[in-house]
Design a protein around this nucleic acid. Structure first.
Length: 514
RNA sequence: GGCGGCGUAGCCAAGUGGUAAGGCAGGGGCCUGCAAAGCCCUGAUCACCGGUUCGAAUCCGGUCGCCGCCUCCA
């Protein structure tokens, strides 16, 4: 970005868009809640991390130095339960799923966060913080556990704007009452566990392990200090997780706000039939309606998955469906075909793609598209990361690119120069959103191979028929050529004849189009 | 019961005070041996009712429908 632009982002707590003003000039301190690593990640997790990857990249483009921390919760009851079931050591189990998550997030092309702390490496900080809370009267020991006293914190409920009374008056039977707690909404900072063979650490309050929320407070402050710029995660973390983090952190440090901006990503929904009725519900482990990132990447190209994620603004729910993923796949394919066309046209004209000519003003009808493009792209993303608007801009670019690359008689010098600028813009936008990052030939092959796999076809058998048809065409045997094309068509293979030869592709699973 | 959100063309989806981005599908055209790809043209007054305003999809009130959170959850 040529000059500092004001980035506006929606803050959950104030329920409004605010101009981003860093605590330390030029720096962004960002903590994003990671996952509890007892299983493969699902596509809902992926949405959150794809989004914040783009947030991070955009801040960097805007000239900020970003410190991105994302934790792994590797000590948790669910991990213990899963470890018990499978007879594995809990920390080995979580280590395995951290690796699996890395594999999936790498495949999606995410940059690794700068710091990825684990609970098991920060027990000391956690114990220290719990002790501080006890000392200050915000927490109490009870039956070997330590609980946070929600009524001691004035601001309790300020993020999720709910009152303790309202929640108590709410759905009966939902809140678990325990003799150990002073108030039903008090939550565990430390869970006592005296059995020697379970995962635990010695502490001033006895042997045990941390409760759920404390780790994020302890680890975020360990790496980013008492005040962070951005704290984020999925919408479902607003209550109780983030609410509790605020209560703990601000109580412990006496410093407010704990986080200046709270950003929450909408849920991934999935359409299902429940009791004979079509409904759309949040994807979740407990409902059992989730798709793992691994499964999805087996079916769809990672860049198509990212494209799909960007079709809806991050705060709204998005529907995971075959149709939506297919459409995203088609768009990514279209963009790569476009890039491929530009590259070929430019190479034919003697352009060196690695060393584009020095920038100069564009003349003619494309001027108004090319010159202000990056400014418009930045404006879209600076407005609370409006990725659908960014995609709309990319569509305009691609259309113009195709027009240039396929113009009759071949592009002239001015058109070639315009194309090289369009190409650069496409790549810039793609780099921010996470696609168009491969060589078009490679990407198109990857896309093709996934479809071949879907249709249970091999490239060889198709190529054979293509060669046969080319021969028929060379002999102007149109009847035979068309017969072969019809046969291929039945296999959902589409043929594209061009002066450079015949290429083909597989139609997507979505109907007979695309 | 409390808190939050959503309802925009056949479908997906931006836009939150000045006469509705983009994509998919459909229709018409250019190109093509014919196709496909690509390009061009083509569609909505914004759930409903009432109000504020010179002017509202956009603000206020109400109605209906859907979803999320209040329990582990990204």
């Amino acid at each position: 970005m040529s000059e500092p632009r004001s980035i506006v982002l929606y803050d959950t707590q104030s329920q409004t868009k605010l101009p981003f003003e860093p605590i330390e000039p030029g720096k962004v301190k960002m903590y994003i809640c990671g996952v509890t690593v007892y299983d493969l990640t699902h596509i809902g997790h992926a949405r959150v991390y794809v989004f914040f990857d783009t947030v991070k990249r955009f801040f960097e483009r805007a000239g900020y130095e970003v410190c991105y921390v994302r934790n792994h919760t590797d000590v948790d009851d669910k991990i213990l339960a899963r470890a018990e079931e499978t007879g594995v050591d809990p920390l080995e189990l979580s280590a395995k799923f951290i690796d699996e998550m890395d594999r999936d997030m790498d495949a999606l092309g995410l940059d690794r966060p700068d710091i990825e702390p684990k609970v098991s490496d920060h027990i000391e900080e956690i114990i220290e913080m719990v002790q501080t809370l006890i000392d200050k009267g915000f927490a109490y020991e009870s039956g070997g556990d330590v609980y946070y006293r929600v009524e001691s914190f004035d601001g309790y409920g300020k993020l999720s704007r709910r009152k303790l009374e309202d929640m108590e008056a709410g759905r009966s039977g939902r809140v678990t009452e325990t003799d150990l707690k002073e108030h039903p909404f008090d939550f565990a900072l430390w869970k006592g566990d005296t059995s020697e063979d379970s995962l635990g650490w010695d502490s001033p309050f006895g042997r045990g392990r941390p409760g759920w929320h404390i780790e994020c407070s302890a680890m975020s402050m360990r790496y980013l200090g008492d005040g962070l710029d951005i704290h984020g995660g999925g919408r479902d973390l607003i209550f109780p997780h983030h609410e509790n983090e605020i209560a703990q952190s601000e109580a412990a440090t006496g410093h407010a706000p704990f986080a200046k901006y709270w950003m929450h990503v909408g849920m991934v929904n999935v359409a299902e039939v429940v009791d004979g009725e079509a409904v759309e519900r949040k994807m979740s482990k407990s409902l059992g309606n989730f798709w793992t990132t691994r499964d999805v990447l087996g079916q769809y190209h990672p860049e198509a998955v990212r494209y799909f994620m960007h079709t809806t603004v991050y705060r709204n729910p998005i529907t995971y469906s075959m149709d939506n993923l297919e459409e995203a796949t088609c768009r990514v394919e279209y963009l790569y075909f476009t890039l491929d066309r530009i590259d070929r046209a430019l190479k034919r004209a003697g352009y060196d793609l690695e060393n584009p000519p020095p920038e100069r003003a564009v003349q003619g009808p494309l001027k108004d598209l090319i010159e202000p493009f990056e400014d418009r792209l930045d404006a879209a993303l600076a407005d609370d990361f409006n990725t659908p608007n960014a995609l709309a801009l990319i569509s305009e670019l691609a259309r113009a690119s195709n027009e240039c690359a396929t113009c009759k008689g071949g592009p002239d010098e001015a058109t070639c120069y315009a194309m090289s600028r369009l190409r650069a813009h496409l790549l810039t936008a793609g780099a921010l959103l996470g696609f168009l990052r491969r060589d078009p030939t490679i990407a198109l092959r990857e896309l093709r191979d996934l479809r071949l796999k879907q249709k249970d076809l091999t490239a060889e058998e198709i190529d054979e028929m293509i060669v046969e048809r080319e021969q028929a065409r060379a002999e102007k045997d149109w009847v035979r050529a068309d017969q072969l094309r019809d046969r291929l068509d039945e296999l959902d293979v589409e043929i594209m004849d061009s002066p450079e030869g015949t290429t083909w592709r597989i139609r997507g699973a979505r109907a007979r189009q695309c």
